[in-house]
């Protein structure tokens, strides 16, 4: 690691004031930041330890339904929280499918959304041609090994995917990411938080320097929701494809569906066209469900080695819907 100075933050005000200085980085769980420092992905000169800020590690019910989750809550604590387990199984499942028990004890729900891609070229111990490592150096994966890369929303500048599991669940839940910043905070829809590579391939999300995630807000309970993760080993591995489904049902009929795919683009990928067509479908009618899902794949574009992910993603979406329907409401 390149040398840096360190300070522990004890108030939100001081934190966002100090964080606004260039080359400052916030340290919460550390499970991403430390690896970036070791690989030279970022080289901040000032580290602001926010892990002991008060009041950011609670789950609270929102008036009028919904929950607010403090950004510094550790992943395991979110996933095992009784209200999350009961009302937002998709989020609980997504978290418990992420990383390992030890890492989930460190990583925070806010920090998790700031994960950078797992593209092997980006994560290499040497700096390889990669526009996310160095803008203008090119994309090694485009003509290299890309079998686990994007099928949606990629450009020739970057074909990577966003790896966060919780982010996929939050996108399907229409969660809101609440931030604080010296110039005022924001409320950002989860599905719009991460950036596709079309404008600034080097950027991962919409946050500005010094902007801090303080909470995640979940709308009304979504007990019929589920997460499905596909990976070659059973645990402790990033997804090839994942799918989050949130359903509202009338008996066996889908009233409303929200679907998001993970590891298929640089942001959780909402299947809006499919969602529209799913309204009114019978859960037992696999053909109707598949036809609806198909609508959202018109824009899918495979790379040289990952056409299989298109079929895989369709099946994952279907299975996630069926799994969500089986969750008791």
């Amino acid at each position: 690691m390149t040398p840096f100075v360190y300070a522990r933050a004890d108030s939100l005000g001081d934190t966002i004031a100090a964080g606004a200085a260039p080359d400052s980085a916030f340290l919460a769980g550390g499970t991403e930041l430390l690896n970036w420092l070791r690989l030279g992905i970022t080289e901040p000169t000032r580290i602001i330890d926010i892990s002991r800020l008060d009041g950011l590690d609670q789950v609270e019910a929102l008036p009028g339904g919904g929950l607010t989750i403090g950004a510094l809550m550790h992943l395991n604590d979110v996933a095992l929280h009784a209200l999350v387990v009961r009302d937002y199984p998709v989020l609980s499942q997504a978290i418990l499918n992420a990383a390992s028990p030890q890492l989930r004890n460190l990583a925070t729900i806010g920090g998790n959304l700031l994960q950078k891609t797992r593209c092997a070229y980006f994560r290499a111990e040497e700096q390889l041609p990669c526009n996310k490592r160095q803008l203008g150096s090119g994309c090694s994966a485009l003509h290299g090994i890309n079998d686990n890369h994007a099928i949606f929303g990629w450009t020739e500048d970057c074909v990577a995917t966003q790896p966060s599991d919780p982010a996929v669940a939050l996108a399907a839940l229409d969660a809101v990411i609440v931030t604080a910043h010296r110039s005022g905070g924001r409320r950002i829809p989860a599905a719009e938080f991460h950036l596709l590579p079309d404008t600034r391939p080097e950027a991962d999300n919409v946050l500005q320097q010094g902007e801090l995630i303080t909470a995640i807000e979940l709308p009304a309970p979504a007990p019929r929701s589920a997460y499905l993760k596909v990976r070659e080993r059973e645990s402790y591995e990033y997804a090839i494809v994942s799918a989050a489904a949130v359903l509202e049902m009338d008996g066996q009929t889908i009233r409303r569906a929200a679907l998001a795919l993970g590891s298929v683009a640089l942001r959780p990928w909402r299947l809006s066209a499919a969602e529209e067509q799913l309204a009114g479908a019978e859960i037992g009618d696999r053909e109707a469900l598949s036809t609806a899902i198909e609508q959202s794949f018109a824009q899918a574009r495979p790379l040289s080695q990952n056409a299989y992910k298109i079929e895989l993603a369709k099946t994952a979406a279907l299975r996630a819907i069926e799994k969500a329907a089986r969750m008791s409401s």
Partner: peptide, 15 residues
């Protein structure tokens, strides 16, 4: 009391 990966923690944060 919680299990964690010691390689992912800056020692200074353990004050």
């Amino acid at each position: 009391g919680r299990r964690v990966n010691a390689c992912m923690i800056l020692a200074v944060s353990c004050e």
